[in-house]
Structure formats: structure tokens, C-alpha cells
Computed example of a mutant assay.
Amino acid sequence: MGVTTAETYAEFAAREAHGVSPIYERLSRAVAGDATIHELLETVPEAKRQPNLLFGVVRLLGGPVDDPAAFRDFTVARWAEIAPNLRGRATQTNEPGRCAVLLPVLLRLPQPLALLEVGASAGLGLYPDRYSYRYGDRRLGTGGPVLECDLTGVEAPDRLPEVVWRAGLDLNPLRVTDSDDVAWLDALIWPEHEHRRARLTTAAAIAAADPPHLIRGDLVDDLPALVAQAPAGATLVIFHTSVLYQVPDDRRQAFEELVQTLPGHRISVEAPGVVPFGDLPPAPDDTLHNVVALDGVPLAWARGHGQAMSWFAG
């Protein structure tokens, strides 16, 4: 038996929003106990019932999320408008902060790099060389937003990577020069996270000044052709962060088989169980952590927005 809608929202409240977004934690707990909202959500595909998507759509349409009762009234009254948005959109959270957990892995690879992001959204994860970072007392970089990461278990990076090519693949690539696309990216940022909203603005300006090569396509059918465009003389890195949980099991398996046949390296940052691994050490705590892996070898735990990374590999 699958996970119920109530369980999905209760888990989101406890493991993702708790300690990170009091507004979403309170709202998720309310939705978890609301049979009327459950009935509405069950009219859309299961993959489209997730909290981040529903909350983002309501925010995009101007609805309230800070008051559960007002949220319920809005959702019920505007369901005819909300439902098609749920069906037609995806949680394309394009969080530049995730570059802070990519950086320690990227620097282990021969430079320069050719970066290819699967599930790239607007491509803001393709600029790890253009951002600044703070790992404890260590500060790197002089441009872009400052990405802060609580890094343990490994020495903090002391330099930025050299990137000579950047490309992205997405079923629905977003453009930072399109106001509607930027509005959706903004709606996906959690209510209290003004630092992430400011980070989005700064990162979007970097991408707009030097747009990445974004392709509309499928992660299996269209990946080999994009890989073939990577320049010779650079280390190809195929990476994806919090993407594969949205991919149906059969396509996810096909991607796993395909990516092992492609040149270069692969970095995955996904929730446990999404990418197959053997035994993993315990996560730092009960909040949701992703597994950071290089070429199928797990290296570290990381929080979803890149705010913390706990290295466990030798």
C-alpha cells in the first residue's frame, strides 16, 4: 500500500519544514488532517500532490500560506484554477545553494570541467565558479550570492572550479529572462526564506548575463546527444540534485543504466532510496538529507537547500 496524502504532508512537516519553515510546518500539519483537501488532491496524479508543488501554486496565484484556515478557503474556492497548475507544473526549485555541496566533489575532478545538469530548471546550478561560499571561517569567491554551508568531516574547499562549458536538460526549461518563469521560481521559495529570494535574484542576473545552453528534453532519450556536444579536453560532469524522485520508476531505472555507459563523471544528490546504494551510515539527524555520490560511490549527507553537508567517506 502506498503512502497516503495525510502521511505525505505529516512527513513533510516533521522532516523537511520543521526547524526550517514554521509557516510550512504549521500548514503541512493542517493539510495532513484535512479530508476535504485530500479529496481535492486525489483528483490529480499522485506525483502532483506533493506539498512543495501545492504550496507553490497557491502562492503563485496570490493565495495565503501563513494562515491554514485562509489557505483552506482559498484552495477550495480556487480549485478549478489550482488543479491545472498542479498538473502542468513541476517543483523546479532552482536553489543555487546546492552548489555548496557540489563544490567539494567538483574539486576532486581534473579541471577544467564541462557541466551538464539533468533537471536543470533555469540552470542556476551550472555556475559554481561564479558564486561565493562560506564554510565556517573560510570564504571563497568575490562575486554572486554568498552560499553558506555547515561542512563537517572534510576540509573546506580552498579554490573555485574551472568551468569551460555548461549545459542543462529539462522537460520544461525555465528562462531567467522570462518574468513568468522567474515568478514560478520565486513562488517555490519557502515563505520565510528572504535570503534565498535575494540569492535567486543575484544568481538569475549572473545567468542572464551569460545564459547556459538549456535543452528541452527527456533525461533518457535526449541525454546522449547533449553529452556529445561537450568539448574535448574538459572533464564532463553529469549531475542532478533532488530531481529523480519526480521520475517514474521505469524511467529512473533506464536513466541509471544509460548514465553508466556515458563518458565522464556523475554526481548525484538525491534522497536515500532514489539512487540505489548499499548500506549507508546514519544521517546526522531525523531531518531529510540527500546522499551526495560520485560515480555511484556515496560520499556525504546534505540538506536539501545546500545549507549543511556531513562528509562520511574515507
Rank of each mutant, 00 (worst) to 15 (best):
A293Y: 07
L106C: 10
T4Q: 13
A313W: 09
R29D: 09
V44L: 09
D137L: 13
A187N: 13
L258V: 08
E270R: 04
V259G: 04
L160D: 08
W190R: 01
N85A: 11
G264S: 02
A183D: 13
P191Y: 08
D221A: 15
T142P: 07
D221M: 08
P96I: 01
R159M: 01
V220A: 09
I267K: 03
A13F: 09
D181Y: 05
R266Q: 12
P145Y: 13
S121P: 03
S242R: 12
V57K: 02
D170L: 06
D249H: 15
T261A: 13
E7A: 12
D129N: 13
F71T: 03
E16G: 03
L294R: 10
E39C: 07
Q229L: 14
R98V: 00
V291W: 08
C99K: 06
Q50S: 14
S242C: 10
A205Y: 08
W184M: 08
G119Y: 02
P145N: 12
G136V: 09
H193I: 06
D178T: 09
G143I: 00
R159C: 00
L140V: 08
G19D: 10
R216G: 02
V154D: 14
G141N: 05
H289V: 02
M1R: 15
D181W: 02
M1I: 12
Q229T: 15
T93D: 13
R78C: 03
A35M: 14
N172R: 12
V118A: 08
R49L: 07
S242Y: 10
D129I: 06
W190C: 01
L61V: 07
V3E: 15
L244K: 02
A230C: 04
F277M: 06
L262I: 01
S268G: 13
E194V: 06
L258F: 06
P96Q: 08
